[in-house]
Amino acid sequence: MDEARWIQQARAGDVESFGRLVRAYQTAVYNLAYRMLGDRMEAEDAAQETFLRAFRHLDRYDPERPFRTWLLSIAAHHCIDRLRRQRPDLPLDPGYLGDEDPDPEAALIRKETRETVQRLLRHLPPTDRAVVVLYYWYGESLRGIAEALGLTVSAVKSRLHRARWRLAQGLEATDEV
């Protein structure tokens, strides 16, 4: 498989092969960073830092595990660290990228949905946010999330449940406003 070869060559210091890996996983890593941080600039910086760390620590990658999960694990840990250092009252990014919808009404609904999702995610503590993003956007299993975040499966499950209740409360508060 090409990916295994790219990883092997990138491990030997081949930047071109690493570039192929970056192009293959850039959206996965960027989306996770954006969902976690809620800001485009922060997300780009975090996603870049994720790839730099991955390149530096490629020798620690276990080829038995999926490369994507390993990358997402680095990204999630990095974003959790950033969120812990960040001010809690940063303004919400008005929405990512200009994926213009030809139908203005549909565009408005999509924009509102995006904003609601980002606003809801902000109700969650960093690790719970990572659990929710990995579960809903990446379809990771509870075991996969546990491995990626260094938690037990039962801890992931209880965090996911707690996060759902918090999001539901957040939605209620949004509706009341």
Binding site: V15, F18, G19, V22, R23, Q26, T27, V29, Y30, N31, Y34, R35, R40, A43, E44, A47, Q48, F51, L52, Y96, L97, D99, R110, T113, R114, V117, Y136, W137
Partner: peptide, 15 residues
């Protein structure tokens, strides 16, 4: 919720 695509030129900036 949609997936947010990486911005244009992202890979080049990483490299």
């Amino acid at each position: 919720a949609p997936v947010a695509s990486a911005p244009t030129g992202f890979a080049g900036r990483v490299l």
